[in-house]
Design a protein around this nucleic acid. Sequence first.
DNA 1: ATAGGGTTAG
Length: 658
Amino acid sequence: MDILQPTMVFCFSSTQKPMSIVQFRRPRDLRSRSGIAVVPQNITHQLFDEIPLWDTFAWNNLIQTHLSNGDFRYVLSTYGQMLLRGVRPDRHTLPRVVSATRLLGDLSIGKQVHGQALKLGFSSDQYAITALIEMYGHLDSVDMAKLIFDKSPHHNLVSWTLLARLYIVQGKPSLALDLFHRMVDVGVLVDPVALATATSACGLLKSLQQGKLVHEIARRCGLEYDVLVSNSLLKMYIDCDSLKDARFVFDQMPSKDVISWTLVIRSYVRIGGFNEGLKLFRQMNLDGMKPDSLSIASILPACGRIASHKQGQEIHGYMLRNGIYSNLKVKNALMDMYVKSGAITCSSNIFAELNEKDVISWTVMIMGYSLHGRGKLGVELFHQMEKNSKTQLDDTTYAAILHACGTARMVDEGKFYFNRIRSPTMAHCALMVSLLARAGLFDEAMVFIEEHKIGKHAEVQRKLLEGCRIHRQYALGKRVVEQLCNLEPLNAENYVLLSNWYAGCGKWHMVDKLRETIRDMGLKPRKAYSWIVFRNKVHVFGTGDVSHPRSGRIYSELQRFMEEMRVQMVEPIWDFRLHDVDEERECIQTGHSELLAISFGLISSQDGPVRVTKNLRICHGSHEFAKFISKMSRREIILKDPNTFHHFSDGFCSCDDY
DNA sequence: ATAGGGTTAG
């Protein structure tokens, strides 16, 4: 094929309109006399006739306009006309035409243009070379790009950086870094973009040592505090898991932009520093930096994780008020925030209004329903997803559907989906064990564990224990706990479980012995806490806590419910055999932290749900008591524990006592 | 001409 053939270059699609040539528009040219819009070719032809043949500048201008409008085929057709009419392309023409072939993804035309560049004598032009490097790099290979680079008479900063970038895209960061150091060695003056490219290579290599070397070069060039360079350094230190260095860079930055803030906020959120993340987010606002959709998508997971319904809602409100563009990523993050902070209805409202959904949207909702005890809805949603969209499922989606089957106790469906997973992960297997154990199918669970050889994983044993707890399988439960002590001898929680088991059978000498063991090993069992947000303050309660200013009223309210319960002949439950908190066994029921938080919630507000979060699992007795309270007080209580959300309402719980 | 930040994972 020859690019000079007009048939080849005039390949307009009928739907495309020549919007881009508006600057050459003359009223009488645009419409034919009959008033019918003329076809693009005609307009273009007429326009070509208007451009003087000697005026290369005007032709370049037209090419540039097409290029920036994304009309790459017009670039080629204009270029074709130039050649056809004998207009001489200059050094401004070829780079743009080469870029157009790259963006079109057409290597063969690109090669033809390259040939013409050689013929016309532009092969050593800096701009033509960079365009060619990029074209070959994207459409052919990095090796081909390297060849152009090597053959070019002189290398400039941009061609060095471009080639390095190509190596990074190809997953070869160490080659990119080599190139950067060679460039520095031959004495090319580096700029912020070159430094940013080298820094990101270090991040990909996770090499702190290399990163610090580039940091030193940046310092020597006096570019350390350039905002692009600082941000890349920040990201590099985060990628290398050195939050300490990242924070140092951040604190030193004389001027931070929204990207700097987002980077550092996200890095705290990722390692679980939710409060620090929120603190920084507030600081960003105080510093007058307006959050955008990307920074908001980074902070929302923190709101979800600490189940701070209020803060997440405030951020959502801020977005609506300030018209912050919210794309699917942000909406997914919002949905997940509402799921994790106990407001499943808010997430399903957002979900219902989505006009496009990706795999994450579906996964968040399936998992969301399941976490809120509505596994069946989650399974239904999965069916809907398979019917309505060609979403490519991933491991997380399968984990969500297995979780939903577990919550809904849909064993056959769970097995069906498990068998569909091409290579099940440990998490998938553990979810299957959970599904079988929760359904009381212990023999089958044991066979499954045996078949998949996963008995050595504490995660799996804990799922098994969950089933034992639900179905009061105390003999099997004890064997599982002993197994856990063997698998994780340094996990205090396992000894607490064992100790509670012995306490349940009145074997107090064993309880004492275990307590000694825990102490001698220097282990510290986790303490139970519950918290509730009231008037933008977090109120935290420990077991038997009396430090709250309204403590008297909190306890008397619980006492009142307790007496009521006795009158109604409801027996309090004292079964701590498979419970994993031991301080609670020794505390009166009304001293359990979740009940203190619930009571505080009830006395400090008149209506609306009471939202409480607990760091450890709720015990059986408190669960029963909370059901009773919800009935007597006619209030909805939403309690989040590490595994699930319990919605207590009118004497029932959404978890169906599982 | 080359460039730094975002969502699920029970």
